[in-house]
Each structure stands twice: as C-alpha cells, then as structure tokens.
C-alpha cells in the first residue's frame, strides 16, 4: 500500500485535531482537506478497511458521508480512494473499462482538484485504480490497489431483501439459497443465467458480490497480487480481498463456471482475449466489437505496425 506512508503526516495532524486544509496552491481546491474528507473521517474509513482486509469478503458497515457526487455515481469508491490516497500516488479512474467515459472523467477531475494527485490512463503506471464495472485486462501487480464502486454490496439481495436476515445468513455461512438459485437456473435454462455481478466465494468463507463486473472478469480476482477494496457509499458498507486470496465463482462440479464474452475479435486491435463492447454501426444489423479496456486497446494498437491497425 504505497498510499499509507504518504498519508501518515496528515494522520498525525488529525491526531492533534489539525488538518491539511488547502490554501489553493499546487492546483488543489481551496478550503478543503487533502482528498476532500476530513482526517477523522479518513481515519474511520481506514480502520474499516483494516477490518475488511482482516475478514476477506465480509461487509463492514461504515459511517459513509454524503459526497459532492450523487449516490450511485461512485461515492463509496470515492470515499475509499480518498482515505488511501496520498500526494505520491498516481490515480487511474475507469468506468466500463474506459478512461474517457464522462463519469470517469468527472471522478478523475474531482481527485485532481481535491487531492492534487497525478493521474494516468496507463494501468501499469497507476498506484490506485478506481473502477466501475471492469477489471483492467493488464494483470495488476503487487503494491497496486484497485477500488471498486459497488451499488449493492449484498450478494443475496435479490433472493432476500431484508438486511437483518442476510446478515444472519452470512454469519452462519448459510448460502443454500444462492446454490438453489443457480441450480434452478441450470434446470430451467441449462446454464446459470447470471452474466455480471456473478457471486463469488472469498477465502472459502464469505459469499461476496464482485460489483457489477462481467463474469468474464471474475477469474482475475482470484489470487490477484493487488489489494482489492470495495466501497458502497449509499449502502454504507466496505469490504476487501487481500492480495493472493482465493476468489471462486460459484458453480457445480458438473456445471463449471463459464465466463461470458462475445465470440469476436476487437475491430481496433484484433484482440481475441479481451472483453468486448458491441457497437451498433447502422440500423441494418451492422455491428462491430471493440475492447472495453481503452488503455489495453491503445497499447496494443501502438505496438502494431500502422497498416495492421487500419
């Protein structure tokens, strides 16, 4: 966690009751603390994160704050990022795998304003990656942190909406309801009818919502060298998967987990492995497929001879 040493002076300041309010220099927004949140709130979130890391996949309630962006726009992820980011960090923000979607642009600009941090679009160069709905194609490495924006942290909510009840089910590791759902899907459709936010078992103990990433991305979570943090602002829950932790997509021996991917190649870089977006090109059924991970696609295009890309 490269962010922690960098944030320590501010934490000391918090212990003394002081903060690092910006005077507007170094491009930071005047009147606000580094990373927008006050130091006590950041400390509360870091403590929640430590607990979350200690119990992989377990949802820890936290005193989520109202943020200047709406709930549903990534307030949980933003609070987690704000709590771990320091001036030495390099932040990448993606939405749907892309750095240039409007919400990713907006969040990246928010952190550039309130934290004055360097941003990047390169997965390899980032120390923190905040994401909505994707895990980058480029494998993450040790020392990196990936922060997921989570709309519904409870993997069982479609089967049991009462939170008091799902808490009991997690406490007892009573996940029969989810297995029955998967079984019924197979009985009715011949396959599991979940294509994103596909439930995973973390460290053999907690059922976890991986956030609405496509099931294609699920295998990347398993024994990932990077630290995975999940923030749900509106639902006021944080959870985590420490590096190299087992993350298994639920399945049955005779019906193994099958990630979903369009059977095509990227029209821009030719990748046969990456997750693809379908782009409708006309109203006569014309469509092409392109990588959803823009950094991955650009890197591959740049590495190819010019003619090949066109």
């Amino acid at each position: 966690m490269s962010a922690v040493p960098a944030a320590r002076p501010a934490e000391d300041a918090a212990a003394e009751g002081g903060e690092d309010r910006s005077d507007g220099s170094a491009g930071r927004l005047a009147g606000y603390n580094l990373g927008y949140l006050d130091e006590n709130t950041k400390r509360m979130i870091r403590r929640t994160l430590l607990k979350a890391v200690a119990i992989p996949g377990h949802q820890v309630p936290f005193g989520s704050r109202e943020m200047p962006l709406p709930y549903g726009w990534g307030t949980g992820g933003i609070q987690v990022t704000a709590a771990v980011i320091g001036p030495e960090d390099r932040l990448k923000v993606i939405d749907q795998g892309a750095d240039d979607t409007t919400n990713a642009v907006s969040i990246r600009r928010f952190f550039a304003r309130v934290a004055g941090v360097a941003t990047t679009e390169r997965t390899r160069e980032a120390s923190i990656i905040q994401t909505r709905h994707r895990i980058p194609e480029t494998p993450l490495r040790e020392g990196q942190i990936i922060v997921y924006q989570v709309p519904m942290p409870e993997p069982l909510f479609r089967l049991e909406p009462r939170v008091a009840e799902t808490r009991r089910m997690h406490a007892l590791a009573d996940y029969g309801l989810m297995h029955v759902k998967l079984y019924e899907d197979i009985a009715r459709h011949g396959q599991v009818a979940i294509s994103y936010n596909y439930p995973v078992m973390v460290n053999g103990r907690y059922l976890m919502a991986p956030s609405p990433i496509p099931s294609f991305d699920n295998p990347k979570m398993d024994r990932m060298p990077a630290l995975q943090l999940f923030g749900a602002g509106r639902e006021k829950r944080i959870y985590a998967v420490p590096p190299y932790t087992a993350v298994k997509s639920l399945d049955f021996e005779d019906h193994p987990f099958q990630p979903v991917r369009a059977p095509a190649a990227c029209a821009l870089c030719g990748s046969q492995e990456s997750y693809l977006d379908e782009v409708v090109t006309d109203d006569r059924g014309g469509r092409i497929f392109v990588c959803s991970d823009t950094d991955y696609c650009h890197t591959r295009q740049a590495a190819q001879p010019r003619e090949a890309a066109e």
Binding site: H133, S195, P212, P214
Partner: peptide, 16 residues
C-alpha cells in the same frame, strides 16, 4: 441517486 444512476453507462453489463 440509485434510481438516477441507471442512466450512467452500463455498456459492459448489458453486453454480458
């Protein structure tokens, strides 16, 4: 927030 967030991009989920 949660009702209106449905208008944010969901291309990736919709694709799957």
């Amino acid at each position: 927030g949660f009702v209106e967030h449905l208008k944010l991009p969901h291309y990736v989920d919709f694709q799957s």
